[in-house]
Design a binder for these strands. Structure first.
Lengths: 170, 170
DNA sequence: TAACAAACCATTGACGTCCATCAAATCCCA
DNA sequence: TGGGATTTGATGGACGTCAATGGTTTGTTA
């Protein structure tokens, strides 16, 4: 499996460190990340939500792709670069699979004692647990309505039905 | 990693010196810069912003590339050369990873006590911290709007589209 | 010789690395 | 199938290293 799926909730310790869920680490390693050596995960404040987006090399390449079409040294490119590269932090993963979240990122997502990791396929997000619970409720509502529109015969929507599949520990 | 990414804020000391963030130095060294020896970073006032542009060999080559298309000894080339090269300063990096900013550059960017280094991929910028905070907000706004223009059909923008909803299962 | 700049050195605090502990899930064998 | 052993992942803490920063000395030039 090479996608981020499921949700997990881990603690932030006194030094601001938090363990990345093991399944996510496995995906990152397959994505070209070498634990312990130089490199790390790319992390930035999500645009539309009080959360952090994060991912590995694949995510970095997508960001590059957004800028690839723009001419060098145009104002437009500079402006986009500020938002895309300027907001990104490269977080190193230590030997125990942990990252430490800088203050700036933590405050954007309102993270204090716990972090909920949410798999989104190519990337994952980090949420303050209570906030994510709300968001999740809204999302379920939405899925419910969407299914009604498409009709019950749709196999894909029944795919979204399974719950209790989360691996949240602790 | 061979690109300038993230933002860092460092102090200017009484003698006008400021440390270049270690990750940026690493990029510069990989780019062909040898700390301590002859050479330095290329730095010039940004054309459209109260900030300084800076970079290493790769940046210099890109500037060369802009001129390459024009015929030798043409007036056009001469003028563009002056515009591009005329304001460039080569700043030496001392043994501790610091540069000292000449008064001309400092005043263009309004730098007094602190400098915010902003990674933009092939180059980085130096900003007065408060001014950068504004610029960053604008940039995020713009990305926000750009995404809406592209719409969900765009592969790249759909990547940035999620607000967490699609990852919410169970 | 005074003024300035550049190299050198020293301190401090943050961060990365390493180690120990604990809980949960799995495996193995009776 | 049940219980104990083993493995893996999460968490907390100690320690060493490096980056940022401030200061001092040396060299150079007018």
């Amino acid at each position: 499996m090479d996608r981020f799926v499921s949700t997990f909730t881990n603690k932030i310790d006194a030094k601001g460190r938090v363990s990345i869920p093991a399944p996510f680490r496995a995906v990152l390693e397959r994505d070209g990340y070498a634990t312990g050596s130089a490199g790390g995960i790319y992390c930035y404040p999500a645009l539309e939500a009080p959360a952090l987006d994060a991912g590995g090399e694949r995510l970095a390449k997508k960001i590059d792709g957004l800028l690839a079409g723009l001419p060098d040294y145009s104002d437009e490119r500079d402006e986009l670069s500020v938002a895309l590269y300027g907001d990104v932090q490269v977080l190193a993963i230590d030997g125990d699979g942990r990252i430490s979240l800088p203050e700036g990122l933590r405050s954007h997502a309102g993270l204090t004692t716990q972090v909920t990791f949410v798999g989104l396929g190519d990337k994952f997000q980090m949420w303050q647990p209570e906030r994510f619970a709300e968001r999740r409720e809204r999302a379920r509502e939405k899925v419910h309505q969407t299914r009604k529109l498409f009709g019950a015969g749709n196999r894909l929507s029944s795919e979204d039905e399974d719950d209790g599949s989360e691996g949240a520990r602790g």
